[in-house]
Design a protein around this nucleic acid. Structure first.
Lengths: 136, 136
DNA sequence: CGGGATCCGACACGATACTG
DNA sequence: CAGTATCGTGTCGGATCCCG
Protein backbone atom coordinates (compact mmCIF):
# COMPACT_ATOMS: atom_id res chain seq x y z
CA UNK A 1 0.00 0.00 0.00
CA UNK A 2 3.03 2.24 -0.02
CA UNK A 3 2.80 5.02 -2.54
CA UNK A 4 6.43 4.72 -3.52
CA UNK A 5 5.85 2.16 -6.23
CA UNK A 6 5.70 4.04 -9.46
CA UNK A 7 6.57 1.12 -11.69
CA UNK A 8 3.87 -0.82 -13.44
CA UNK A 9 3.82 -4.49 -12.69
CA UNK A 10 4.42 -6.43 -15.83
CA UNK A 11 1.15 -8.20 -16.61
CA UNK A 12 1.28 -11.95 -16.66
CA UNK A 13 4.45 -12.07 -14.62
CA UNK A 14 4.51 -14.25 -11.53
CA UNK A 15 5.25 -11.27 -9.35
CA UNK A 16 6.67 -12.30 -6.06
CA UNK A 17 3.64 -10.55 -4.70
CA UNK A 18 4.60 -9.51 -1.19
CA UNK A 19 5.57 -5.97 -0.45
CA UNK A 20 9.05 -6.60 0.79
CA UNK A 21 10.79 -9.82 1.70
CA UNK A 22 8.43 -12.70 1.11
CA UNK A 23 9.93 -15.80 2.65
CA UNK A 24 12.76 -16.02 0.17
CA UNK A 25 15.41 -14.92 2.59
CA UNK A 26 14.17 -17.47 5.11
CA UNK A 27 14.74 -20.19 2.55
CA UNK A 28 18.16 -18.88 1.62
CA UNK A 29 19.19 -18.52 5.23
CA UNK A 30 18.42 -22.20 5.55
CA UNK A 31 19.85 -23.73 2.37
CA UNK A 32 21.97 -20.87 1.06
CA UNK A 33 25.08 -22.00 2.86
CA UNK A 34 27.86 -23.92 1.22
CA UNK A 35 26.86 -27.49 1.95
CA UNK A 36 23.18 -27.94 2.87
CA UNK A 37 21.80 -28.48 -0.60
CA UNK A 38 24.54 -30.93 -1.48
CA UNK A 39 23.77 -32.98 1.60
CA UNK A 40 20.05 -32.87 0.85
CA UNK A 41 20.65 -33.95 -2.72
CA UNK A 42 22.74 -36.87 -1.57
CA UNK A 43 20.14 -37.89 0.99
CA UNK A 44 17.49 -37.69 -1.70
CA UNK A 45 19.06 -40.86 -3.07
CA UNK A 46 18.43 -42.77 0.11
CA UNK A 47 19.57 -43.38 3.66
CA UNK A 48 23.21 -42.55 4.33
CA UNK A 49 25.64 -43.01 7.19
CA UNK A 50 27.94 -40.25 8.31
CA UNK A 51 31.02 -41.40 6.46
CA UNK A 52 28.99 -42.24 3.39
CA UNK A 53 27.77 -38.70 3.33
CA UNK A 54 31.23 -37.32 3.75
CA UNK A 55 32.61 -39.44 0.94
CA UNK A 56 29.69 -38.55 -1.31
CA UNK A 57 29.66 -34.81 -0.85
CA UNK A 58 33.31 -34.38 -1.82
CA UNK A 59 35.29 -31.65 -0.22
CA UNK A 60 33.22 -31.29 2.92
CA UNK A 61 35.13 -31.45 6.17
CA UNK A 62 34.08 -33.55 9.11
CA UNK A 63 33.25 -30.47 11.07
CA UNK A 64 31.09 -28.89 8.37
CA UNK A 65 29.22 -32.10 7.73
CA UNK A 66 28.41 -32.32 11.41
CA UNK A 67 27.24 -28.73 11.56
CA UNK A 68 25.26 -28.98 8.34
CA UNK A 69 23.48 -32.17 9.27
CA UNK A 70 22.73 -30.84 12.75
CA UNK A 71 21.09 -27.74 11.39
CA UNK A 72 19.09 -29.76 8.89
CA UNK A 73 17.95 -31.97 11.72
CA UNK A 74 17.00 -28.98 13.82
CA UNK A 75 14.93 -27.58 10.98
CA UNK A 76 13.16 -30.92 10.57
CA UNK A 77 14.50 -31.60 7.09
CA UNK A 78 16.62 -34.57 8.12
CA UNK A 79 16.12 -37.29 10.70
CA UNK A 80 19.00 -38.87 12.57
CA UNK A 81 18.95 -42.43 13.87
CA UNK A 82 21.61 -43.78 16.22
CA UNK A 83 22.19 -47.51 16.53
CA UNK A 84 24.01 -48.23 19.80
CA UNK A 85 26.43 -50.67 18.20
CA UNK A 86 30.16 -50.72 18.35
CA UNK A 87 31.52 -49.09 16.39
CA UNK A 88 28.66 -46.59 16.43
CA UNK A 89 26.34 -46.38 13.46
CA UNK A 90 24.30 -43.30 12.62
CA UNK A 91 21.88 -43.06 9.74
CA UNK A 92 20.55 -39.94 8.14
CA UNK A 93 17.52 -39.67 5.91
CA UNK A 94 15.25 -36.97 4.60
CA UNK A 95 12.02 -36.35 6.40
CA UNK A 96 8.78 -35.64 4.59
CA UNK A 97 9.64 -31.96 4.90
CA UNK A 98 13.06 -32.62 3.46
CA UNK A 99 11.59 -34.44 0.50
CA UNK A 100 9.31 -31.52 -0.23
CA UNK A 101 12.43 -29.43 -0.61
CA UNK A 102 13.72 -31.63 -3.42
CA UNK A 103 10.97 -30.27 -5.65
CA UNK A 104 12.36 -26.81 -5.15
CA UNK A 105 15.90 -28.01 -5.76
CA UNK A 106 14.67 -29.61 -8.93
CA UNK A 107 13.33 -26.26 -10.08
CA UNK A 108 16.64 -24.62 -9.27
CA UNK A 109 18.50 -27.28 -11.22
CA UNK A 110 16.28 -26.75 -14.23
CA UNK A 111 16.63 -22.99 -14.14
CA UNK A 112 20.38 -23.32 -13.88
CA UNK A 113 20.57 -25.72 -16.79
CA UNK A 114 18.35 -23.53 -18.92
CA UNK A 115 20.22 -20.27 -18.34
CA UNK A 116 23.77 -21.08 -17.33
CA UNK A 117 25.11 -20.57 -20.81
CA UNK A 118 23.36 -17.22 -21.21
CA UNK A 119 24.79 -16.12 -17.88
CA UNK A 120 28.25 -17.33 -18.75
CA UNK A 121 28.17 -15.41 -22.01
CA UNK A 122 26.90 -12.29 -20.29
CA UNK A 123 29.79 -12.54 -17.88
CA UNK A 124 32.32 -12.94 -20.65
CA UNK A 125 30.95 -9.90 -22.44
CA UNK A 126 30.90 -7.81 -19.25
CA UNK A 127 34.41 -8.85 -18.32
CA UNK A 128 35.60 -7.93 -21.79
CA UNK A 129 33.97 -4.51 -21.58
CA UNK A 130 35.30 -3.87 -18.09
CA UNK A 131 38.87 -5.14 -18.18
CA UNK A 132 39.88 -3.44 -14.95
CA UNK A 133 37.17 -4.12 -12.44
CA UNK A 134 37.40 -5.45 -8.94
CA UNK A 135 33.88 -6.80 -9.11
CA UNK A 136 35.31 -9.83 -10.80
CA UNK B 1 27.65 -44.84 -12.41
CA UNK B 2 29.49 -44.95 -9.11
CA UNK B 3 28.95 -48.13 -7.20
CA UNK B 4 28.88 -46.37 -3.86
CA UNK B 5 25.16 -45.67 -3.96
CA UNK B 6 23.51 -48.36 -1.98
CA UNK B 7 20.34 -46.46 -1.23
CA UNK B 8 17.27 -47.01 -3.32
CA UNK B 9 15.92 -43.91 -4.97
CA UNK B 10 12.46 -43.22 -3.68
CA UNK B 11 10.10 -43.90 -6.58
CA UNK B 12 8.09 -40.97 -7.81
CA UNK B 13 10.39 -38.42 -6.23
CA UNK B 14 11.71 -35.62 -8.39
CA UNK B 15 15.24 -36.73 -7.77
CA UNK B 16 17.71 -34.04 -8.50
CA UNK B 17 19.01 -36.51 -10.98
CA UNK B 18 22.68 -35.61 -11.40
CA UNK B 19 25.34 -37.59 -9.66
CA UNK B 20 26.81 -34.79 -7.63
CA UNK B 21 26.25 -31.09 -7.80
CA UNK B 22 23.69 -30.30 -10.48
CA UNK B 23 23.64 -26.57 -11.06
CA UNK B 24 22.18 -25.78 -7.68
CA UNK B 25 25.36 -24.36 -6.27
CA UNK B 26 25.76 -22.19 -9.32
CA UNK B 27 22.36 -20.68 -8.65
CA UNK B 28 23.09 -20.20 -4.98
CA UNK B 29 26.46 -18.65 -5.69
CA UNK B 30 24.58 -16.13 -7.79
CA UNK B 31 21.51 -15.32 -5.70
CA UNK B 32 22.42 -16.86 -2.36
CA UNK B 33 24.00 -13.71 -1.04
CA UNK B 34 22.30 -11.36 1.33
CA UNK B 35 20.74 -8.86 -1.06
CA UNK B 36 20.44 -10.13 -4.64
CA UNK B 37 17.00 -11.67 -4.37
CA UNK B 38 15.60 -8.65 -2.59
CA UNK B 39 16.84 -6.37 -5.34
CA UNK B 40 15.45 -8.67 -8.01
CA UNK B 41 12.10 -8.79 -6.23
CA UNK B 42 11.95 -5.03 -6.08
CA UNK B 43 12.92 -4.71 -9.73
CA UNK B 44 10.21 -7.20 -10.60
CA UNK B 45 7.78 -4.41 -9.78
CA UNK B 46 9.23 -2.14 -12.43
CA UNK B 47 12.07 0.18 -13.32
CA UNK B 48 13.90 1.69 -10.36
CA UNK B 49 16.53 4.34 -9.85
CA UNK B 50 19.45 3.80 -7.50
CA UNK B 51 18.03 5.68 -4.53
CA UNK B 52 14.61 4.17 -5.09
CA UNK B 53 16.16 0.75 -4.82
CA UNK B 54 18.04 1.66 -1.70
CA UNK B 55 14.93 3.02 -0.02
CA UNK B 56 12.89 0.01 -1.08
CA UNK B 57 15.23 -2.73 -0.01
CA UNK B 58 15.52 -1.49 3.56
CA UNK B 59 18.73 -1.99 5.39
CA UNK B 60 21.00 -2.25 2.39
CA UNK B 61 24.03 -0.01 2.41
CA UNK B 62 25.07 2.10 -0.52
CA UNK B 63 28.12 -0.02 -1.03
CA UNK B 64 26.24 -3.32 -1.02
CA UNK B 65 23.57 -2.02 -3.36
CA UNK B 66 26.27 -0.99 -5.79
CA UNK B 67 28.02 -4.32 -5.59
CA UNK B 68 24.80 -6.31 -5.81
CA UNK B 69 23.45 -4.46 -8.80
CA UNK B 70 26.84 -4.65 -10.56
CA UNK B 71 26.99 -8.38 -10.19
CA UNK B 72 23.42 -8.77 -11.37
CA UNK B 73 24.29 -6.65 -14.37
CA UNK B 74 27.37 -8.72 -15.08
CA UNK B 75 25.31 -11.89 -14.98
CA UNK B 76 22.80 -10.38 -17.41
CA UNK B 77 19.91 -10.38 -14.95
CA UNK B 78 19.66 -6.61 -14.71
CA UNK B 79 20.22 -3.84 -17.24
CA UNK B 80 21.59 -0.45 -16.29
CA UNK B 81 20.77 2.74 -18.17
CA UNK B 82 22.58 6.00 -17.51
CA UNK B 83 21.00 9.31 -18.47
CA UNK B 84 23.71 11.99 -18.69
CA UNK B 85 21.68 14.57 -16.87
CA UNK B 86 22.64 16.64 -13.89
CA UNK B 87 22.22 15.37 -11.31
CA UNK B 88 22.92 11.96 -12.83
CA UNK B 89 20.08 9.54 -13.28
CA UNK B 90 20.54 5.79 -13.50
CA UNK B 91 17.74 3.32 -14.08
CA UNK B 92 17.77 -0.37 -13.36
CA UNK B 93 15.41 -2.96 -14.74
CA UNK B 94 15.22 -6.71 -15.07
CA UNK B 95 16.27 -8.26 -18.33
CA UNK B 96 14.41 -11.15 -19.90
CA UNK B 97 16.81 -13.44 -18.06
CA UNK B 98 16.08 -11.62 -14.84
CA UNK B 99 12.37 -12.05 -15.30
CA UNK B 100 12.80 -15.77 -15.82
CA UNK B 101 14.31 -15.85 -12.36
CA UNK B 102 11.15 -14.49 -10.79
CA UNK B 103 9.41 -17.78 -11.51
CA UNK B 104 12.00 -19.53 -9.40
CA UNK B 105 11.69 -16.94 -6.65
CA UNK B 106 7.95 -17.47 -6.75
CA UNK B 107 8.50 -21.17 -6.13
CA UNK B 108 10.80 -20.37 -3.23
CA UNK B 109 8.23 -18.02 -1.76
CA UNK B 110 5.54 -20.67 -1.97
CA UNK B 111 7.71 -23.35 -0.41
CA UNK B 112 8.61 -21.00 2.40
CA UNK B 113 5.01 -20.07 3.05
CA UNK B 114 3.93 -23.69 3.00
CA UNK B 115 6.55 -25.00 5.41
CA UNK B 116 7.79 -22.13 7.55
CA UNK B 117 5.53 -23.02 10.42
CA UNK B 118 6.58 -26.67 10.37
CA UNK B 119 10.20 -25.61 10.39
CA UNK B 120 9.66 -23.14 13.19
CA UNK B 121 7.99 -25.79 15.30
CA UNK B 122 10.75 -28.29 14.58
CA UNK B 123 13.26 -25.72 15.75
CA UNK B 124 11.37 -25.03 18.93
CA UNK B 125 11.20 -28.72 19.73
CA UNK B 126 14.88 -29.25 18.94
CA UNK B 127 15.92 -26.28 21.02
CA UNK B 128 13.84 -27.55 23.91
CA UNK B 129 15.43 -30.99 23.69
CA UNK B 130 18.91 -29.57 23.39
CA UNK B 131 19.02 -26.72 25.90
CA UNK B 132 22.79 -26.40 25.86
CA UNK B 133 23.87 -26.42 22.26
CA UNK B 134 26.09 -24.06 20.37
CA UNK B 135 24.41 -24.96 17.09
CA UNK B 136 21.80 -22.36 17.95
C1' DC C 1 22.22 11.70 -7.37
C1' DG C 2 25.15 7.78 -8.02
C1' DG C 3 28.62 6.17 -6.97
C1' DG C 4 34.21 4.90 -5.54
C1' DA C 5 37.86 4.10 -1.87
C1' DT C 6 39.09 2.65 2.56
C1' DC C 7 38.91 0.59 7.03
C1' DC C 8 37.22 -2.81 10.04
C1' DG C 9 34.62 -6.48 12.62
C1' DA C 10 31.97 -10.75 12.44
C1' DC C 11 31.39 -14.99 11.03
C1' DA C 12 31.66 -18.99 7.81
C1' DC C 13 34.60 -22.31 6.76
C1' DG C 14 38.95 -25.21 6.77
C1' DA C 15 42.67 -27.85 9.18
C1' DT C 16 44.11 -30.37 12.82
C1' DA C 17 44.10 -32.98 17.05
C1' DC C 18 41.61 -35.73 20.30
C1' DT C 19 37.74 -39.08 22.07
C1' DG C 20 34.01 -42.79 23.30
C1' DC D 1 32.81 -44.81 13.14
C1' DA D 2 31.01 -40.58 14.48
C1' DG D 3 31.78 -37.17 16.30
C1' DT D 4 33.88 -32.74 19.71
C1' DA D 5 37.22 -29.03 20.62
C1' DT D 6 40.34 -25.59 19.25
C1' DC D 7 42.60 -22.55 16.35
C1' DG D 8 43.48 -19.87 12.19
C1' DT D 9 41.96 -17.52 8.02
C1' DG D 10 39.33 -15.44 4.14
C1' DT D 11 35.50 -13.30 2.79
C1' DC D 12 31.16 -10.76 3.31
C1' DG D 13 29.17 -6.96 4.61
C1' DG D 14 28.69 -2.41 7.43
C1' DA D 15 30.40 2.35 8.35
C1' DT D 16 32.48 6.29 6.87
C1' DC D 17 34.48 9.72 3.89
C1' DC D 18 35.03 11.65 -0.60
C1' DC D 19 33.91 12.99 -5.50
C1' DG D 20 31.88 14.54 -10.28
Amino acid sequence: MSATHTGVTTPGEPIVSCADDCGIREVLDRIGDKWSVLVVVELAHGVRRFRELQRAVDGISQRMLTLTVRRLERDGLVSRTVYPTVPPQVEYKLTELGHSLTHLLQAMTEWSAAHREAIAESRRRWDAEHPDSDIR
